[in-house]
């Protein structure tokens, strides 16, 4: 029997390996966000006490109802960027790859947002995660891998932040899984947030982008200042329980039931719509 040609096998294996590497979708470029999905919630932003559609627990509802937007005037809040699980909702972004010079493999994928100059790295080299007692960050620690043509990203080590920009919290023990899906010149990013402290089930949302390489990502300097003169030292704006000045303003304006406006997992499902409207009619 004829011996197999070892060189040919090796060459075939090499080709296979290289084609596997080539199969990675390249996400590099400047992507401009498309805001049509959930537009009112994104621009101008959610109303006070507009919690529907988010699977919050009772604790998170209480946090939302205690949240006074004046807290954003505090110096410790003025320059905060959106966390990685929220920053897909706004602002154009640049994506570029970091290539390891020796192996020529993708070491990491960097994403820079225009708003608040948020920048994150999705490590592709399978490095070890930091220990639980390491410092957390707005963007967290992300590891990515390709699942077919989809970039799957798992993030830990997030700072406490928000799941919606009206006081609904996302804790620092939350983790996220994201999927980056490219369709030609369009990019869809799906983020799944797991938060055992404040969500009763996973919260999922998607955001869309269009390639726009002519666009520049501008710098975004930020310098906190005293915005309100005379605030006492240590003052933290918040509403006392039961004293929210506009708890049902949103619900009443849009003729929704109060139960719907106050959110919870049930309000995220289509069948809730009939119940909410029926309740209102009564």
């Amino acid at each position: 029997m004829r011996k197999p040609n070892r060189s040919a096998i090796a060459a075939a294996l090499l080709l296979l390996a290289s084609s596997s590497a080539m199969a990675e979708v390249d996400l590099s470029g400047v992507w401009n966000v498309r805001l049509h999905e959930d537009l009112p919630e994104r621009i101008p932003g959610p109303d006070m006490a507009e919690f529907h559609g988010v699977p919050i627990n009772e604790a998170n509802r209480a946090r939302g109802l205690a949240w006074d937007p004046s807290i954003l005037t505090l110096e410790e809040y003025q320059c905060r960027p959106h966390p990685s699980d929220y920053f897909t909702r706004f602002s154009p972004e640049r994506i570029w790859k970091e290539i390891d010079s020796e192996t020529q493999q993708t070491k990491g994928i960097h994403i820079r947002k225009e708003w608040q100059a948020a920048e994150r790295t999705i490590w592709m080299d399978g490095r070890e995660r930091p220990p639980a007692y390491a410092v957390h960050s707005w963007q967290g620690f992300s590891l990515g891998k390709w699942e077919g043509d989809v970039l799957a990203v798992e993030t830990t080590h997030l700072k406490q932040s928000y799941v919606r920009r009206n006081g609904l919290a996302r804790s620092d023990i939350a983790t996220t899984r994201e999927h980056y899906i490219r369709h030609g010149d369009y990019l869809t990013i799906v983020a799944v947030i797991h938060d055992p402290a404040y969500l009763t089930e996973s919260f999922i949302r998607s955001s869309d982008y269009a390639l726009d390489n002519k666009r520049n990502i501008a710098p975004y300097p930020c310098d906190p200042v005293v915005e309100i003169v005379g605030q006492p030292k240590g003052y933290v704006p918040h509403y006392m329980p039961g004293k929210h000045p506009s708890e049902f303003e949103y619900a009443d304006r849009y003729n929704l039931s109060h139960e719907a406006a106050l959110g919870g997992a049930q309000t995220a499902y289509p069948e809730f719509m009939e119940k909410a409207l029926a309740a209102k009619k009564r």
Partner: peptide, 24 residues
């Protein structure tokens, strides 16, 4: 920058922190 890093705070118990964690 952006309420991150800079002065690091070692708590009595728990994880390493910075100003934003402390503010929360």
């Amino acid at each position: 920058d952006r309420q991150e890093g800079g002065t690091l705070v070692i708590p009595g118990h728990g994880r390493l922190s910075d100003e934003a964690d402390l503010a929360e």
